[in-house]
Amino acid sequence: MKERVVLDVSALPLHATGAASPTWWGTCAFMLIEGTGFALALAVYFYLMSLAPHWPIRAPAPDPWPGTFLALILLASVAPNVLVSRWARQGDMRRVRLGLVVMCLFGIAPLFFRAYEFPALRVRWDDNAYGSITWTILGLHTAHIVTDLVDTLVLTCLMFTRHGDNPRRFGDVEDNALYWNFVVVTWIPLYASLYWVPRL
């Protein structure tokens, strides 16, 4: 078929950034999937609660301290996270490298508290349905922390290589920061349900 050029695209950038970039949308879609998963886990938590004569089932209310510390760390991590993302947008390599290293630490720290959180539930996953759902929710969220931590570690190494200085990498850093914010935000309702709902 005859072709007729009606639109000149030669001037366009070679890379789509921010909300224009497919990876950004991919990350959003991925967060939608994960978010649905978390919402569902919570729904199941409340469904089981509605069936149980006593909630928690045959267990004391969980000890909120490790979870609370973890929540505080996650919240604290938002500040550097936002900064990294901003520096990435400005393409400030020195700061991005620094920020990423900081974010790695902020990714590792929660895992220590998580280690104490499971016993702090004061119930085993195989004691009863209450134990099962709480361990599952906690495990699910841990999986997300670990995933993003690994992602951050790899990205940090990457930024110290010759591949680092590239708008694409900075875009990856932004998306990674976005995902970390998601991990933090999801923890808030999970935390509230796991530790404070049983005390109501």
């Binding site: 009863n128 349905a129 134990g131």
Partner: peptide, 17 residues
């Protein structure tokens, strides 16, 4: 998990359904 590690999501005897 119910089948492998003994969780009780679907076991009425232990608060599941």
């Amino acid at each position: 998990m119910d089948r492998l590690v003994g969780t009780h999501f679907y076991n009425p005897a232990e608060g599941g359904d």
